[in-house]
Design a protein around this nucleic acid. Structure first.
Lengths: 151, 151
DNA sequence: TTGCTCCTCACGTCACGTGAGGTGGC
DNA sequence: TTGCTCCTCACGTCACGTGAGGTGGC
């Protein structure tokens, strides 16, 4: 009989694997974003299993897009409801995807804006005020496109 | 003789144009991220000119990529140094571009991750545990790529 | 006068970060 | 015993947000 290998991790390992600092892992647990992690019998140290890690990866992904901890809590709470929660989860994920799409769009605009600013300072450095002026005008036009809801 | 049209804006107009709330505009001014804005003679209300607006657009762009206010202050302080500051500004902008490039990369990964999660819950909803399992494995692989420094 | 926007100042908040002081395992 | 990581709890911090209370212009 082959037993399923159940790797477990310390909080430091979980931190490096998820990219979140250990203090944040404790914080998320304390406010109920993730379920309480099991503890070492005598040490009281947190012991993370694969399922914990997967959940944390997911939470890290949500957090990275600026979602509030209150919303993250809602998301994670649905996880244990199984197939019944599927439509709800899909709706939440679709909303998340829309947020990501919008963020990606904004980043493209900002990249163009920064590129123009680099050109601008290049012209200033080269003592070409006419070109600088022209680029500044272009940048102003682009700035109009950027004046949408950030963050 | 044609006088240059110098449009001016109230704080509310500046807020809608930059996408930043009025409270944030006051905050940035109070901590020196932007220069003190001139005031109406008798009212004491802030009066923003085109130059202020352009500076604010730039600051909003920096802030949107998660730059600290301390760093933004540094960036803006260089602005009035003219051509001498050009190499410095270009270096700062290049660093900003690198941050944006990294952010864009992360967002693409997160979009793929969320797409997989949607597929997963679709499989759960359709009662196809085998497919769900397969997708979960794929997601785990992708999660590895996500475990870099977020934010 | 009545709304309207704006003002300052102080305190609140959100999402953590940072010690202080203490404990378990090689 | 000596480091090492971990623990909790409390307080700090960063970037604002939110009133309270007040004032100027149509």
């Amino acid at each position: 009989v082959t037993t399923t290998r159940q790797r477990s991790y310390t909080i430091k390992e979980a931190a490096t694997l998820t990219g979140l600092p250990a203090s944040t892992l404790r914080y998320y647990e304390s406010i109920g974003v993730i379920a309480p992690v099991s503890r070492g019998a005598s040490s009281g140290h947190r012991v993370y299993d694969e399922a914990d890690l997967e959940q944390l990866m997911w939470v890290a992904c949500l957090a990275a897009t600026g979602m509030s901890v209150a919303d993250m809590r809602r998301y994670v709470a649905n996880r244990d409801l199984g197939a019944a929660a599927a439509p709800d989860q899909i709706a939440l994920l679709a909303a998340q995807q829309e947020r990501l799409r919008h963020e990606a769009e904004q980043i493209v605009l900002r990249q163009r804006y920064v590129a123009l600013k680099i050109d601008y300072w290049g012209a200033v450095r080269d003592g070409d005020p006419q070109r600088a002026e022209q680029i500044a005008a272009e940048a102003a036009t682009l700035a109009d496109a950027l004046k949408q809801t950030p963050r």
